[in-house]
Design a protein around this nucleic acid. Structure first.
Length: 224
DNA sequence: AACATGATAAACT
DNA sequence: GTTTATCATGTTC
């Protein structure tokens, strides 16, 4: 039961038997683009609604205020919504998109630097039955978390968890490190930010090459 | 008015 | 099987 029920790259990850909780310092890095890459292969854990779930992070996007026009905190715009991103790294920033979908971000950098990494896809690892129940009628497990809104629904993540600390032993949401592994990373432009002008071309979206649990590549990509 | 999307159906290959 | 169009839906500033 500790094996992911598929034949993808992560078939040998063994849940939290061998993974370790990421420490506060991990999130204080001032380069969110670097962190977005480092988060690939890490394990997102949720312990909400009485159920425990885990998924391998397989796709991310970096958002870097103040210069990033695609960030909600562009120009260091401080509002009630964006205030979470100005907190110290290691919390989560969760917001509602298009009135329907919750989006899960990891806040990074020291306080008052509004950086964040959007988690865009996970490979389900633990709590599959809970995820299937939360997601409702879907045909295949690869659709449980292959999109930012989908993974939030599968993991039971919603805005009432906005601002939660990710690095405490008993956090409702946390990130764990399963140890080093050899993965190939693809980079490309971020999704759904055509309004962001020049920033829309920055290759700040990352995903694990050949992993079947990422969202569809609707932008050009290249190996890094 | 715009928005860091998802589910579905209908039309293609 | 894959692409395309359409709409659902609520918060933000």
């Amino acid at each position: 039961m500790f094996y992911s029920p598929n034949n993808s790259f992560y078939f040998s990850f063994r849940s939290n038997l061998i993974s370790v909780l990421l420490k506060r310092e991990f999130y204080l890095d001032t380069d969110p683009v670097c962190l977005a890459r480092e988060l690939l292969g890490k394990i997102l854990c949720s312990h909400v609604e009485g159920s425990y779930c885990e998924g391998v992070i397989v796709e991310t996007e970096a958002y870097k205020a103040p210069e990033d026009k695609a960030s909600h905190a562009y120009g260091n715009r401080l509002t009630e919504r964006t205030s979470t991103m100005f907190g110290e790294g290691g919390r989560c920033y969760i917001y509602l998109c298009y009135g329907i979908h919750e989006m899960f971000n990891i806040v990074s950098a020291p306080e008052n630097i509004a950086h964040a990494i959007l988690i865009r896809a996970i490979e389900p690892l633990e709590g599959l039955e809970t995820m299937r129940k939360r997601r409702g009628r879907i045909k295949e497990d690869k659709n449980l978390g292959n999109g930012p809104g989908k993974l939030c629904k599968a993991m039971g993540i919603s805005r009432n968890l906005n601002g939660q600390i990710l690095y405490h032993k008993n956090s409702l949401l946390s990130i764990r490190d399963p140890g080093p592994s050899a993965i190939n990373i693809l980079a490309g432009p971020r999704v759904g930010i055509a309004y962001a002008g020049e920033c829309a071309n920055w290759p700040w979206r990352f995903r694990i090459k050949d992993n079947p649990y990422t969202s569809l590549p609707d932008n050009p990509e290249y190996n890094i």
